[in-house]
Design a binder for these strands. Structure first.
Lengths: 220, 220
DNA sequence: TATGCAATCTACTCATGAGTAGGAAAATTG
DNA sequence: CAATTTTCCTACTCATGAGTAGATTGCATA
């Protein structure tokens, strides 16, 4: 007599019949794959130079399937940059709980910031100007970016207050740091010899120490 | 009796009849105006989002006139970035003759570099990716950029050699500096309160000194 | 005065690419 | 099995924008 209440522990992986949850997962994975393919192409060719037909072709699907999963091109871009900014927000959250001097915490944040800027969605954030989005979406984009900038400025201000960062114009320091660490989004080649980790720590070190030699570390 | 050999000294400014040179000048000015209008629009809206019809309309001319003066859209963009890179090369040239330590010279160059990145053509260089140009033009663009990067690296290496710059990975230092100073091309508003001069010197100061406080300058 | 060149325009062509209509095949559910 | 939902496709429409053809106007020079 076949069981009417099938044991949830026994999962026949090879079964062609998927449960509701499994199918939802499946759907999510497809959605994810489409988004990933889109952001990669946007990064490689630029948003305007990328057609959704191209994105679709790279996945062996048709354009309407992209609309089915993600909506129109503007929504696709918005989701890409929102993801990237989400990763940055998460980095900020993780550092919020960290301890150490203001400079220590800032450095920790900058390392994460730099690394996000070298992954698919982070790169997209850097490469996308507000001009690319329709006004409504652009406003949201700016809001999220402003929030990250706010976190950065707060950290700098805290470091100045506790003396671990030398005094200066907080806004200008923030722009300088962000600019330096955004730039790899433009030149870094994931297939190249330098890992994002190396690049990030190298740059943060340079920014912390400055160009001029420090008294404490005589070079010869 | 009217003079058969008119006095070259007497120039009737209000004359509707222009000499050959005057008309050539006229032409150059028009060409210049078209190029300037184009680069401004590229910077404001992005290259792909700018139509040559829009550029033409902003000057009260028609699209074929742009083709008459500048050629196709790709050539327009190439000329814009070539101008910007030319300004950078000129900056490098000016610094080559300067004296002082490696750091002094580097700082002088960085100041000029930053300022170029806030003018029309410099901004265009920063905002334009190779992907925007047809392969042939992209190759030329890359060559010119590499040349500037070479100058920057040479200066850093000289500073390290003479001890005015602390030792480190030259390539990474160059990218860090360039990134920080390129970024204003994205956010600087010429109509805003901060002048390019102020921004440039502020950023160069931050990059030179680094975030961490220096022993010599106790803050309190 | 005729001929040519310089500077522009109007009015196209043509390709590309966003977005949609409508349907079909599979899976799911009643 | 019938009805419904999910997933995906073919085959459009339609706007935009690059680039061109060919005419026009007017000054310039032989």
């Amino acid at each position: 007599m076949p069981s009417q209440t099938p044991d949830r522990e026994i999962k026949d992986r090879a079964s062609p019949f998927r449960s509701k949850e499994e199918r939802a997962l499946d759907r999510d994975q497809k959605r994810e794959a489409v988004l990933r393919a889109a952001v990669r192409m946007f990064n490689a060719r630029g948003f305007h130079a990328t057609s959704l037909d191209d994105v679709a072709a790279s996945l062996n699907i048709s354009k309407p399937t992209i609309y089915y999963y993600l909506g129109n091109k503007d929504q696709v871009l918005l989701e890409c940059v929102t993801r990237g900014l989400g990763e940055l927000a998460e980095a900020a959250e993780r550092v919020r709980e960290a301890e150490g001097s203001g400079l220590d915490r800032l450095r920790a944040f900058l390392l994460l910031y730099a690394k996000v800027n070298m992954d698919d969605f982070g790169r997209c954030v850097v490469r996308t100007g507000d001009e690319y989005l329709v006004p409504k979406n652009a406003a949201q984009f700016r809001t999220l970016k402003r929030r990250i900038d706010g976190v950065l400025r707060t950290m700098i201000a805290e470091g100045i207050r506790d003396g671990s960062i030398s005094d200066g114009d907080v806004k200008m320091i923030a722009f300088t740091l962000a600019g330096a660490l955004n730039w790899p989004a433009r030149w870094h080649d994931p297939a190249g010899p330098d890992s994002p980790d190396q690049i990030a720590s190298s740059m943060v070190e340079i920014l912390t120490a400055g160009l001029a030699p420090r008294a404490g570390r005589a070079s010869d």
